[in-house]
Computed example of a mutant assay.
Amino acid sequence: MNITLKISTVNLKNRLPQEVRAFSAEELQEFITQGTVIKKKKQYLLIIHHRQFTLQCPILRMDDGSYQMIWPSFKLPNRSYPVFVYLYAVAWYLSSGESMRSTAQKVIKVFGLTTFSHSTLCRFLPKLYPILPYLIQYGAQIINDWGSTTSRVVPRKHWDKLKCVLAEQLIGLLEPVLRVPPEFGSWFAYQYFTDTDRFLV
């Protein structure tokens, strides 16, 4: 699943094993047969499973003269990890009863990261609550495609009633990311972008 968007950049300076990933010749040929011209490629870094990947995203010149970039749905702008890492962190925190620090350590182990700060989770989670009313529309499709959700929220002492309700709704949507992080996380981000022309965060 790929999405098109305007160009943005990200800069990381990590010393991890590096690997270059590009769109396949078949994927690019599909655009070329439609009359699209590939002008150049932009590179973005992505870190997962103790590796640093360089994603090569082609910039296409469309028939109307505009430029569009092909962007993989698992990549968030200005974020060094795939979207499913952040969604997994949120889902684990809401359902496990663990602290944000413990959740960050769990995420580091599960996804083979060098670092993942609890403050990242602290900033990411509140950005999902405002778009929750929009995300709820995916509820039936999530149940049909990914199975019913079984995780329950473990409320925190400092949460009020409204926050508990919002957290319950959010874990109801995100629970599949605990079972199949890459597939569900990419699908979820793709659906939201396709419907809104915006990234999750």
Rank of each mutant, 00 (worst) to 15 (best):
I3P: 07
I3R: 13
T4C: 05
N11D: 07
N14W: 03
R15E: 08
R15D: 12
R15S: 09
L16H: 08
P17N: 08
V20S: 11
A22F: 10
F23Q: 13
S24D: 10
E27Y: 12
E30V: 10
E30C: 09
T33S: 12
T33C: 08
T36Y: 15
K39Y: 11
K40N: 15
K41H: 15
K42W: 11
K42Y: 13
Q43S: 15
Y44W: 15
L45R: 15
I48T: 14
I48H: 14
H49M: 10
H50W: 14
H50L: 11
H50Q: 14
Q52R: 14
T54Y: 14
I59H: 01
D64R: 10
D64A: 08
S66T: 15
Y67T: 15
Y67L: 15
I70C: 08
I70F: 01
S73K: 03
S73W: 06
F74Y: 14
F74P: 03
F74Q: 09
F74R: 06
K75A: 14
K75I: 14
L76D: 04
N78W: 07
N78H: 11
R79S: 11
S80I: 15
P82I: 04
P82V: 03
V83I: 13
F84S: 06
L87V: 06
W92M: 02
W92Q: 08
L94K: 07
S96C: 02
S96N: 05
E98F: 12
E98C: 08
E98T: 06
S99H: 00
S99N: 00
S99E: 01
M100Q: 10
R101P: 01
S102P: 00
T103R: 05
A104S: 13
A104W: 04
Q105F: 13
V107P: 04
V107S: 01
I108Q: 08
V110D: 07
V110K: 12
G112T: 09
L113Q: 01
T114N: 06
T115Y: 09
F116Y: 07
F116K: 03
T120C: 01
R123N: 03
F124C: 00
P130K: 09
I131N: 03
I131W: 02
L132F: 07
P133D: 00
L135T: 00
G139H: 11
A140R: 05
A140P: 01
A140W: 01
I143A: 07
W146G: 06
G147F: 06
T149S: 11
T149R: 14
S151F: 02
S151R: 07
S151G: 02
S151P: 06
V153M: 13
V153N: 06
R156V: 09
K157G: 14
K157Q: 13
W159P: 01
D160G: 12
D160S: 07
D160P: 05
K161F: 11
K161S: 15
K161H: 11
L162Q: 13
L162I: 08
K163P: 01
K163I: 10
K163L: 13
C164L: 02
A167C: 07
E168I: 03
L170Y: 06
I171C: 10
I171V: 15
G172N: 08
G172V: 02
L173H: 02
L178H: 04
R179H: 09
V180T: 01
V180S: 01
P181M: 03
P181F: 00
P182A: 00
E183F: 00
F184L: 05
S186P: 00
S186Q: 02
A189F: 04
Q191I: 02
Y192G: 00
Y192F: 10
F193A: 03
T194I: 09
T196M: 04
R198A: 10
F199D: 05
V201L: 10
